[in-house]
Design a protein around this nucleic acid. Structure first.
Lengths: 209, 209
DNA sequence: AGATCGAGTGCACACCTGTTCACCCACTAC
DNA sequence: GTAGTGGGTGAACAGGTGTGCACTCGATCT
């Protein structure tokens, strides 16, 4: 190995290879069922070389979480560029999530899988990241027309509801193939519309029945 | 082992012990990361005895899924006993889910975990079971006042939305401890109210913004 | 020029993995 | 009472597991 490469570059290349291999292998099972030796073999490197880059598989898992959420944050930034109106949320955000899920399918699937199973530390980090999303979304919602009379708590509750739906949408989107995709998008759009109609008549509409 | 027990009873007892042990161990990691020998040791039985009861760990997994959903079905039956009105759905269904989640915490956690990770066959079975729930809920929703003009598809979409929320609620409920529980319940109630307000003005209310 | 660093190697260890096989021996059926 | 059934045993297998340690040898520093 190693023709004549600058040191840092070589290290970075191996690190990337490990991350990619782990992401691929975790896609077939789950991170918790993954072994250091499997990853090393997939990369084409001796098992002990792994330790030059990560302390443990949990460490690797956290790195993958970071990577995955980096692309998700990019997505969020994109969503925020639109005009602040309810219709805009419905039409744009779902398409943006779908586009990014298509592009980073492996990362989406990884998050979906490790969100519930996966090493404790990884689960916690993912949950934390989603909480951040939730807070940012709540802040955005406060800027929308019609939410003037809302309490901070109500905004948070709605944000949680929307994030839950989007997570579920992403999870299903990543599993589905081809023609069913558009169908899934249409359903998500309708659901988000239902939710936002309900939200619009929240303070004004009152109770139920 | 085996003092002087009737044969069938003895077998059933061991089977139960295996299921319980597997449920407990899976709670600490995930089913996919579980080994036959771990389970056998936990039960206090030799590894090969496992095969007298299950063909494989996947087989065991399916049995656990069946068990978990059996209690969920009991829950569903309970929810259906109420009067068919929107208010009733909000006030009852969440409490019922919470009560059952408290009582069958391990089963709920198992489903939540294995829904995303876990052996393929187990994932598919869980997804299928939730689909059945969705269909039953859609049928119930059709009986409610105000859904007369809805298409079958719209009912399905709303049912999916509600099931998604309830699954997310169950997942979070099972993770939380003590005082935060009631807070979580209150949030779920408010969210369900938002959703149903939106649903009520679905056909009548029209688009948005 | 020579010294140092550090990514990747190779070997070794003790342990855990699924599965096979022949074997008990308490229960059941006759 | 005698034959058969079947849950549980214990040893053995070929292989996979994480990790420690001494090593190479090119890239980097002085």
């Amino acid at each position: 190995m190693s023709e004549t490469t600058p040191r840092g570059e070589r290290k970075e290349r191996t690190r990337r290879a490990i991350l990619d291999a782990a992401l691929r292998l975790a896609g077939e099972q789950t991170l918790a069922a993954l072994s250091l030796r499997q990853v090393a073999k997939e990369v084409g490197v001796v098992p002990t070389a792994f330790y030059r880059h990560f302390d443990s598989l949990d460490d690797l898992g956290l790195a993958l979480v970071d990577e995955s959420f980096a692309s998700l944050r990019g997505m969020l930034r994109e969503v925020r560029q639109g005009a602040p109106a309810f219709n805009w949320i419905i039409d744009n955000s779902i398409d943006v999530v779908a586009a990014h899920a298509r592009e980073h399918r492996a990362h989406f699937a990884f998050i979906a899988r490790e969100r519930g199973a996966g090493p404790t530390v990884v689960r916690e980090e993912i949950r934390h990241q989603f909480e951040l999303f939730e807070r940012e979304l709540a802040a955005d919602l406060a800027l929308l027309p019609g939410t003037d009379t809302w309490t901070r708590e109500d905004l948070q509750v709605l944000a949680n509801l929307i994030v839950t739906q989007m997570v579920a949408f992403g999870e299903q989107f990543v599993v589905v193939r081809g023609d069913a995709e558009e169908q899934l998008v249409e359903r998500a759009r309708r659901q988000l519309r239902m939710v936002l109609i309900g939200a619009l008549s929240w303070r004004s509409g009152g109770a139920t029945s």
